[in-house]
């Protein structure tokens, strides 16, 4: 199971396959690190399981990034991730793409 990873240089964060409450400490750390790059890239293409806590964390991150003027781009979002966000009414907040980019 992949851990959340950040590449300092381009602020890229890969969300783990199991992206749920018990494993969010590392995701949060990765997101905090991404905020120090000029632009952050979120890769949610591998997410197989997601819960409210994870989506809330992403929402908080987006708002924080916007406040700090850090651009955020999605490099991928799995169906699970997009379905979860939609059900919680967070699609717009997270600015998720309508479909997974090729």
């Amino acid at each position: 199971m992949g851990k959340a990873k950040t590449d300092k240089a381009d602020g890229r964060v890969a969300l783990p396959a199991d992206c749920r409450i018990a494993d969010l400490a590392t995701v949060k750390a990765a997101l905090e690190a991404a905020l120090s790059a000029p632009a952050a890239v979120l890769d949610g293409g591998m997410v197989e399981r997601v819960d409210t806590a994870a989506l809330q964390l992403l929402a908080v991150f987006r708002r924080e990034a916007a406040a700090r003027g850090v651009a955020v781009e999605w490099r991928g979002a799995s169906d699970v991730l997009r379905d979860g966000a939609a059900r919680l009414g967070l699609t717009q907040t997270l600015e998720l793409p309508a479909a997974t980019p090729a």
Binding site: L24, L35, F61
Partner: peptide
């Protein structure tokens, strides 16, 4: 139809990811 209420969300640094603020 769900509309999230974000008014109680803290900043990233202050967030304990296991707590619910939505």
């Amino acid at each position: 139809k769900a509309e999230a209420e974000l008014d109680r969300l803290p900043g990233l640094g202050a967030l304990d990811p296991s707590e619910c603020h939505l």
